[in-house]
Write a protein that binds this DNA or RNA. Structure first.
Lengths: 206, 206, 206, 206
DNA sequence: TATGAATGAGTATTCATTCAT
DNA sequence: CATGAATGAATACTCATTCAT
């Protein structure tokens, strides 16, 4: 019971933190604000989190886990490499659209900033890349793609998607452009960028 | 002479600000820090910049202008759409690599955050997109690309590149991946993503 | 015990604030000064008062309450309107003389300045006027005074007294004038100003 | 010519200062503000005024002079003591109503605050009291009033008027009270307070 | 006469964190 | 588990004033 309550408060704190972190930005974020929002004393936050960075780190980890879970689901439900890749792209985009706060938190702090916390935790984030790398490797094995460095390609894929969602969520998109259309076009471009490398290189051979 | 001195200090302040803004992030950035770093009283900053936002805005504007100039140079020196597009990508990437601080500043603040400064200035940033849009339109005219929405495609292109350089500069890249290789691969993917859309759609026709 | 300590510090802060507010004026008054004077960190003030205005407002309210209490006591202990009025004048003057700081604080900020705090609280100040108005009304009923607008007359009475004490406390009085004598004369004038209006108008009738 | 220009700028500065001083209050008042408002550099103010206090002092002196002039005019145009006193009251009130800013400036700083400037200048302010004292003395001589201490009575008169106008200008008047009515009543009370003292004391004699 | 540059001091306020309870 | 008290450090910004030009 008490366990439950504690967990509750911890979760409430994380929830408030999430909201503040993205709504008010890194600048407007403070433990005091989090405590105030949660209706608890500022000191109480320290019962659940060592310090500010620890709280933020927890937030980042949670978001990364959730995103990874989505990618894992795709990985488990599809087998064709091309379909999987498309599935990854869609899962990624949907997560960003459905949980913009959480998504943005993932990219909030770079490893550099997080001096106070172990880099080891950042490794965990790489699980998502493994699904991607694995899929690309499989595609190469099946002669669908021609990627000499699958891991590099996986990072490429991820980076391109990130760029797209980053532009969308930071509201930097030209008002004359339809968001939905933009995302679809982008995914289409990115996927075809992979497929076609093979085609391109075959072209001259013909 | 005195002119020179004044300009000097202003520039020095901007320089310090640039460094702090990216190294310490939006959080650790403060006018006092800038002043301290420049070896000048905190008050002096206000002689050259109305307030914090004004200083930051100047920084952003400078960076955007410089990047745009580079793109313009490419636009002026190349005529073939595909080559131009490649040139844009390379210019973009090179700017980001040569001036990582300036590059990151461009994406530091979203229009949302900059409440104190005119949105009109953000429009200026769009000049780069015009070069891109123009080039893609030309490619479509020459039947090289098949893009129904050139402007959307331009944003797509830009967003992908941004994602790539963002990953590079925030040091999020897996240590086992060679940065140079990663960037080249990424550019290659992005460019081919454009070219091949035509090829793809022709494929079934064969 | 701890209760006591807290209340103690709060009171000490209010005390220092009172002194500074009147001695240095609205200008020289600052929370930091208050803290310094109280021998406490500047931040500590914010534990007891939301902000500067809140502290000042508390000060004003306290003074008004105390003055009103004195008037109420007079109201309760005397019944004859003329004697009551004289009692009011004396109570008012004595309060100003005994608690010059508190008295001056009452008139420090006009409703205009206090933008951050509810006007509703200013209404509280009017309780004193009610005693006056009531007394004048009673005098009119008893045919002692001939005041067509008792409320207006109450404000008149109050304003005249305020002018007198204001001159005394701001040390604007000519050095050749005895303060005690000045106050007595003034009260006498003010009271007779009320009584005599009736007399004056009766005169011609004779 | 240049003389003229200089005088112009000095006057403009005083004008801006007057406006700021009362509109924004003592707190919002600053030399920089004055300079800004006048469209001149902050440093320029120091050409015409030694420092902030000197500027403010000049303002106070000017206002006092103007008020005294009005009283002097009344003194010169009326001879009957009672009429003169009434004339003084009306002149005083009218000046406060027509030039609220200037009027309030007179009472802005008490001698205590003006540490940086000679008390001697405050003596000048007393000229107004002399007209009053003189008039009361004359009334006593003509057996109209019975004031043992004419100078004290003069200060009494002045203080009451000040209280009245102070309440009006600081907007402390109850909204249900008509300002015009209030002022008239107040003047009437104050004047009768003088007249009637004689009457009162005669009364018992009858 | 007028100004731009520069500064030290000061202001309100917020924050992360510690400590005793 | 939870909190109130307390603080040192920091921040943006404003100001009065001086100085060299």
């Amino acid at each position: 019971m008490s366990r439950n309550n504690n967990q509750d408060l911890r979760d409430k704190l994380l929830q408030s933190a999430r909201e503040l972190l993205v709504s008010k930005g890194y600048r407007g974020f403070s433990l005091r604000q989090v405590a105030r929002e949660t209706g608890v004393s500022a000191t109480s936050v320290y019962i659940y989190f060592e310090n500010k960075d620890h709280l933020i780190h927890t937030l980042i980890e949670q978001s990364i886990s959730e995103l990874n879970e989505r990618l894992e689901k795709v990985y488990g439900s599809l087998t064709d490499p091309e379909e999987r890749l498309k599935g990854f792209a869609e899962a990624y985009v949907n997560y960003a659209l459905e949980h913009p706060r959480e998504y943005q938190i993932i990219y909030l702090a770079s490893p550099e900033d997080m001096t106070r916390y172990p880099k080891e935790k950042f490794r965990k984030a790489r699980r998502g890349y493994e699904f991607l790398t694995d899929t690309i490797k499989e595609a190469v094995r099946q002669d669908i793609f021609d990627e000499p460095y699958p891991r590099t390609a996986a990072y490429t894929f991820w980076a391109q998607l990130h760029g797209v969602m980053s532009v969308v969520l930071s509201k930097r998109l030209d008002t004359r452009i339809d968001q939905q259309e933009f995302i679809e076009q982008a995914i289409s471009h990115i996927l075809h960028g992979f497929q076609m490398r093979t085609a391109l290189q075959q072209k001259p051979n013909i």
